[in-house]
Nucleic acid binder design. Structure first.
Lengths: 235, 235
DNA sequence: ACCTGAACACCGTTCAAGT
DNA sequence: ACCTGAACACCGTTCAAGT
């Protein structure tokens, strides 16, 4: 805020009034981590790489995070925080609102290759994730969905959301060009069609047809339709 | 094949006729990998650890696999090969047969913590995985499910199966005792219930209620019910 | 053809020593 | 209180040298 703007360390000027780079902080480390993640994917997020991004050594990060998983958890919540929750639940439009929110979650993670592995490996505990869960439950409540069904549905649908985000972002990160996957599929087909795998061979072209987004939304349709046609679980 | 068998270097006996450990092979490496996986989880499957299991150095493995991911792919297919496909599809019982098969897939992966990350990260190409897909499609066909719906359903349900297996096996591997997860959840609750997260606070106990198996089967019920009540996708 | 030891370029994490 | 360099105990992979 003050005139304490940072400058390169080599051109030292007035020796006072020079905080140089802003003092390291949890937030600064998380932001650095997100930059590394965006460019190099989840496996590129090493303590050394993140530290390098804020011009320090890996050991310095341990002041703010006890270990790498803790940093990744914080990064995930920051990604979650960027997701638009959308309008307040409207009982007339709850379903499309819900589908919209779930699509935005996947899209929000698409820019950060592999981040979806974090909530998959252990349940998120951050505030942004809690807000998303709250909004999702509110939408289900607006739709008149039974509490017990809603409770289990949210678990299941987030598993689906995270798995979708992980799979698609990994494919993107591996630089899979448009036809890449299709090509590998055709190899497979060539090797094992014949009459040993009749259904598989017949449907392989259909399986890979359509975008990931279309398949994801077909999945959501199945689950929500199922929710409206199934008895609540016995608890 | 000849009598050129190696023997433990210290107790050399009749110099011929001693195959000692079977000569290294793809299969032997995969089996060694599975032993390491079962005991130490997916992140414990290092090239050095697998090599040590067959009493050689990491470099030796590169004769059989070009890199670690290729070994993991082969290990996954071996896990898939152990899964019982169950009885031939019966149009009268296709739904319970399908649910049974999908449950066995998750159970089959539960003994190998984290293996489910392999099919999640890139589509399986092995023969055992193909057989499982074939059987799944055959069951859907027996149920009279439309081809296009079946094609997308299998994609979606395997994503769900793999994500479930990954999540549960990781929790188990981290040594989460019975109440472990519940405890962390209560921390969360204590921190953020109040009126900021009314739905979430109210439903958190329900969300974690029931076993992973029950939640998984509720998810399958939603998807299959949805499949029977939804129009096939436009392709 | 297969195996090996040693090396290279990395990791996460710790810790004594600095400020 | 925070930062740091160096170290420790690891990684995946390569390669020259052996058999």
């Amino acid at each position: 805020m003050a005139s304490s703007a940072r400058q390169t360390a080599r051109t030292r000027q007035s020796p006072r009034e020079r905080p140089a780079k802003p003092p390291l902080s949890r937030e600064a480390v998380v932001d650095a981590g997100l930059r590394v993640l965006r460019d190099h994917g989840i496996d590129g997020v090493t303590m050394r790489a993140v530290a390098g991004e804020v011009d320090t050594g890996a050991a310095s990060l341990y002041v703010y995070f006890p270990n790498r998983p803790a940093l990744l958890d914080a990064m995930f919540d920051e990604v979650a925080a960027k997701i638009d929750l959308g309008p307040e639940p409207d009982p007339e439009r709850w379903r499309e609102q819900l589908v919209g929110l779930l699509n935005r979650i996947v899209e929000g993670m698409d820019d950060y290759p592999g981040i979806a592995r974090v909530p998959l490996a252990n349940p998120p505990t951050g505030p942004a994730a809690a807000q998303i869960a709250e909004r999702t439950l509110a939408l289900l409540a607006a739709g008149g969905v039974d509490d017990r069904s809603a409770a289990w549905f949210i678990d299941i649908v987030f598993l689906f959301v995270n798995a979708t985000a992980y799979e698609t972002s990994i494919l993107v990160a591996e630089g899979a060009e448009e036809g890449e996957v299709g090509a590998r599929i055709e190899e497979q087909l060539a090797q094992l069609d014949s009459d040993q795998f009749p259904h598989f061979a017949r449907l392989l072209p259909v399986i890979t047809k359509g975008s990931g987004e279309q398949r994801f939304n077909f999945g959501l349709r199945l689950m929500i339709d199922g929710l409206l046609h199934t008895e609540p679980p016995d608890l």
